[in-house]
């Protein structure tokens, strides 16, 4: 009873986590990425196309990451080079890419809504012998796909790389102190662009997970706002990889619960809105903490 739920929750966590890590890195680099949803959507479609055409999961994943990265790059350039507001540009990309995806479905494949070509190669599940028989632990460790393992491996990896590499250090400086980075002779805008490309690639992979990891086809509503849930996750995580992963896991649980509740006539939509509500609560808490810190200083 609990095992299928755990499995489902982890499965729903993966795309959120992938995109959230991308968004987290992007935000650390100084850009709040509202366009993750669009990069996810494009990644989902391209993964199905390439998977069906080549039968190669690796090629499909690479293509999904590439398209996500390309959309990320174009979004980033508009923001960094044309000084456009990142929120509006992100929303604009969500609208335009959703339109483009549907346009391509209709004009290239003559379908509307769902694209289900024959021969889609799915992400293989990795079953671990013996472990799979252990209750709970088996559901957690066994039967997950490679992207899930990758997503969770990226959590400590991101924390490590941010603190131990040149790129990580420069990225952290760019988000918090652009002028400082420029003053020491680096190009903060290029660093920021690179972080958006990374976010796009991660969101592309997240989309691929939804299409060739979960359902095996593409549907125009396949992302279902998960790009924005990812946004909620990295806001919840306040730019820390482990906290962000916790947020993604929490929201993955909600997602899995919501799917189960739908079958029972329970208010699935109310569960769906929890991530957004939690972000507002977290921001309020931070605002209150900020204010008391300021007044403390004023008194001391």
């Amino acid at each position: 009873m609990i095992d299928p739920f755990i499995q489902a929750a982890l499965l729903m966590t993966t795309p959120i986590l992938l995109a959230a890590i991308g968004g987290l890195v992007n935000r650390i680099g100084g850009l709040v990425n509202i366009g993750l949803e669009s990069m996810m959507l494009a990644g989902a479609l391209v993964a199905v196309e390439v998977s069906a055409a080549t039968g190669s999961v690796i090629a499909a994943l690479a293509a999904a990451a590439l398209i996500g990265g390309l959309i990320g790059l174009s979004m980033s350039l508009v923001v960094t080079r044309l000084q456009a507001n990142e929120i509006i540009v992100g929303l604009g990309f969500s609208v335009a890419v959703a339109g483009l995806v549907r346009f391509v479905l209709k004009s290239a494949y003559g379908v509307s809504g769902t694209f289900n070509p024959p021969g889609v190669a799915m992400l293989p599940r990795i079953n671990i012998p013996f472990v799979s028989d252990i209750p709970v632990l088996g559901a957690i460790l066994s039967g997950q796909d490679g992207l899930t393992w990758f997503a969770w491996a990226m959590v400590p990896a991101t924390a490590f790389l941010l603190h131990r590499t040149r790129a990580g250090l420069r990225l952290r400086a760019t988000g918090a102190a652009e002028a400082t980075v420029r003053a020491v002779g680096l190009s903060p805008l290029s660093i920021r662009d690179a972080s958006t490309v990374f976010a796009g690639a991660m969101a592309g992979l997240a989309g691929a997970h939804l299409s060739i990891g979960v359902v095996g086809l593409f549907n125009e509503g396949i992302t279902g706002g998960r790009g924005f849930i990812a946004l909620a996750a990295f806001y919840f995580g306040r730019s820390a990889p482990w906290r962000t992963a916790l947020g993604a896991l929490l929201f993955g649980l909600f997602d899995a619960a919501q799917i189960r509740l739908q079958g029972h006539g329970a208010p699935a939509e109310l569960v769906q809105m929890l991530p957004y509500l939690i972000v507002i609560i977290v921001l309020t808490g931070l605002g209150l903490a900020d204010r008391s810190r300021v007044s403390e200083r004023a008194l001391s």
Partner: peptide, 13 residues
């Protein structure tokens, strides 16, 4: 939709 999105993107550039 594509055009609406594009207008949004470039409206703030």
């Amino acid at each position: 939709e594509i055009m609406q999105g594009a207008v949004m993107i470039f409206a703030v550039a």
